[in-house]
Design a protein around this nucleic acid. Structure first.
Length: 440
RNA sequence: GCCCUGGUGGUGUAGCCCGGCCCAGCAUAGGAGGCUGUCGCCCUCCCGACGCGGGUUCGAAUCCCGCCCAGGGCGCCA
C-alpha cells in the first residue's frame, strides 16, 4: 500500500482543529501522522497530528470491525494514516470531542524508529536530530518554532509593504566582495572566480535610488570559521533600505517592525508560545538608545576590557546584556569600526551615524545612514584598505546622483532566538549550515 | 585556529576522581502479555551499551598516550 495514490474515498474532510463537540454525529475523514497509541484492554486511543494540531481517535473493541481494531492497536508512531469515523462529544477527550473509528487506511508505516520520542523530556543531542531534521520537525515543540518564524515573516512583510516598501531580490552570486574582508565563499562561475553574497548591502543601496524603499528577505553567506551557538554559514537576512532617511528614521522603523512582529506572534501563535513555554512581552517603544561612548564608559568603569574604536568583545557584550535586558540600541559607533558605506557624523567624523539593535548580549541588526557622495565613498574604501577599482560597478551609480539613504540588516535567526529564548541558532534554523554540517 | 569539558544499549543518563564489589544501574523506546475512558496511562516479563587504536596492570568503562567526534569558551559578526 505504500506509494499508491490516495485511494477512492480517502480525501480529508476535516482537520484536527475542526473536530469539536458542535459537530457531533458527523461522519468525517481525518488524515495525519500517529503520535501515540495507547491500548487499554478493549479500548484504544490514538493521537493523530495534522497541520493544525492533534486529535484523539478512539476505538472500542466491541463496536469496531476486528481487523480495523487489530490494525489500529498495532500502529506505531510516525505512521501516516487516514481514519473514517463519527465525531463524538466526550468530555474526557482532549478537545472535548474525538473521532470513533469505523475504517482505517494506512498510507505508510515507519521501517525504522526515529532516535527520539515525540514527547520525550530528554531529547537526543541536536547533532543527532539534525541528521534527520525533517523527522525531528514532526515534534510539536520543534514545529512551534517554525510556525512562529512564519508569523514573524508575515508580520515583517506586511509591515514593510504598508510603509511603502517593495520587496526585491538581488544576486547571491557576485563577482567581488561587498564589504571587503575574507569572509566569503569562493566558487567557480564558469571560468571565473565568484563568491556567494555576504549581504545585499550595495545592491539595496543602489535600488533605493530607483525605488526609494526596498527590502529583501533572503539568504546570505559567511565563511567565518566560527563555532558558536549564534553563528551559521548561511543565514536569513532581513535587509531594508530607505531613501531620504537617516539612521534615526530607520531605527524608528526597525523598532516598530519588531514590535509589530512580536504583537502578531502574541496574537496568532498563543498555542506555539505555550508549547515552548515562552513568556513573550511586547517591547516598550521607543527602545532604549545607548551611545557607544556611554556603553564604553560604563564598561570601563566596571573594569571590563574595552578598546575605543573596536567592537565590544563577547564578555563586554555579556556585561551590557546584564545591564540592559531586552531590546535596546547601541548608537553612534566609532567610524573606524564600521564599514565604508556608513556615514560619519557631520559634527564629529570620528563617530558615525550607525546603530546596532541588541537583545541582551546578542546583536540582532545593524544599520545606519549611508554615504551618498561618490567621492567620499571612494575615499572611505581606500582608507579601509579596499581597492575602489573592484567597486567600480557600485561607484558608477553614484556618479549619476544618489539620494541620502539609510537602512539596516536584521538577522532573522537571531531575532528568532530573542523571541523564543532558544540559545542555539541551529535550533531555530530548519537546515543549518556551519563549518562541519553540509547535509541534510 | 586556540583553550576547556565530554563520548556508556535506539535515545537520555548513573558508574570514572579512589582499577576488582560492573558478565555495567536507572529511565524511555522496542518485543511478548494483561487491562473498556486513557490523555507523556498503568502493571508483569524480555531484549539491548563502555567512540577508535595502542599502552600500564594479575585485573581497565575507570589510569596513560594518540586519533576521531560532539558540546562550551575566545576571536568575528547578524
Amino acid at each position: 500500500m505504500v506509494g499508491l495514490p490516495i485511494p477512492e474515498g480517502w480525501k480529508r474532510s476535516h482537520f484536527s482543529a475542526d473536530i469539536k463537540p458542535s459537530i457531533k454525529g458527523e461522519k468525517v475523514t481525518v488524515l495525519g501522522m500517529v503520535l501515540s497509541v495507547r491500548k487499554q484492554g478493549g479500548l484504544c486511543f490514538v493521537i493523530l497530528q495534522d497541520r493544525y494540531g492533534t486529535l484523539q481517535v478512539t476505538a472500542h473493541k466491541d463496536r469496531t470491525e476486528p481487523q480495523v481494531f487489530e490494525r489500529l492497536t498495532g500502529l506505531k508512531a510516525h505512521s501516516y494514516i487516514g481514519v473514517k469515523g463519527v465525531v463524538k462529544a466526550i468530555e474526557k477527550a482532549p478537545r472535548g470531542a474525538e473521532v470513533e473509528v469505523d475504517d482505517l487506511y494506512v498510507f505508510s508505516e515507519p521501517k525504522r524508529l526515529p532516535p527520539f520520542d515525540m514527547f520525550a523530556k530528554t531529547l537526543p543531542s541536536l547533532d543527532k536530530r539534525l541528521e534527520i531534521r525533517a523527522v525531528d520537525l514532526r515534534r510539536p515543540t520543534a514545529q512551534a518554532v517554525f510556525k512562529i518564524r512564519h508569523q514573524v515573516l508575515q508580520a515583517i512583510r506586511s509591515f514593510l509593504v504598508e510603509k511603502g516598501f517593495i520587496e526585491v531580490n538581488t544576486p547571491k552570486i557576485i563577482g567581488s566582495a561587498t564589504e571587503g574582508g575574507a569572509a566569503l565563499f569562493p566558487l567557480l562561475y564558469y571560468d571565473k572566480e565568484a563568491f556567494l553574497a555576504q549581504s545585499p548591502q550595495l545592491y539595496k543601496e543602489q535600488l533605493s535610488s530607483a525605488f526609494e524603499r526596498v527590502f529583501e528577505i533572503g539568504p546570505v553567506f559567511r565563511a567565518e570559521k566560527f563555532k558558536t551557538p549564534r553563528h551559521l554559514s548561511e543565514i536569513t537576512s532581513v535587509d531594508v533600505e530607505m531613501a531620504f532617511a537617516d539612521y534615526e528614521d530607520v531605527m524608528k522603523l526597525l523598532e516598530e517592525m519588531i514590535h509589530r512582529a512580536i504583537t502578531d506572534v502574541l496574537d496568532k501563535c498563543s498555542e506555539e508560545l505555550k508549547a515552548l513555554e515562552i513568556e513573550l512581552e511586547k517591547p516598550r517603544l521607543p527602545l532604549k538608545r545607548l551611545t557607544y561612548n556611554e556603553a564604553y564608559k560604563t564598561l570601563k568603569k566596571l573594569d571590563v576590557e574595552v578598546s575605543w574604536g573596536e567592537d565590544f568583545s563577547t564578555p563586554a557584550l555579556r556585561k551590557l546584556g546584564e545591564l540592559n535586558p531586552g531590546f535596546y540600541f547601541i548608537t553612534d559607533w566609532p567610524t573606524v569600526s564600521k564599514p565604508f558605506y556608513i556615514k560619519p557624523r557631520e559634527d564629529n567624523p570620528r563617530l558615525s551615524e550607525s546603530f546596532d539593535l541588541m537583545h541582551g548580549s546578542l546583536e540582532l541588526a545593524s544599520g545606519g545612514s549611508r554615504v551618498s557622495s561618490r567621492d567620499l565613498l571612494a575615499r572611505r574604501l581606500r582608507r579601509q584598505g579596499l581597492n575602489p577599482k573592484l567597486f567600480e560597478y557600485h561607484l558608477r551609480v553614484y556618479e549619476y546622483g544618489m539620494p541620502p539613504h539609510a537602512g539596516f540588516g536584521l538577522g532573522l535567526e537571531r531575532f528568532m532566538m530573542a523571541i523564543t529564548g532558544i540559545s542555539n541558532i541551529r535550533e531555530v534554523t530548519l537546515f543549518p549550515r556551519d563549518q562541519t554540517r553540509l547535509t541534510p
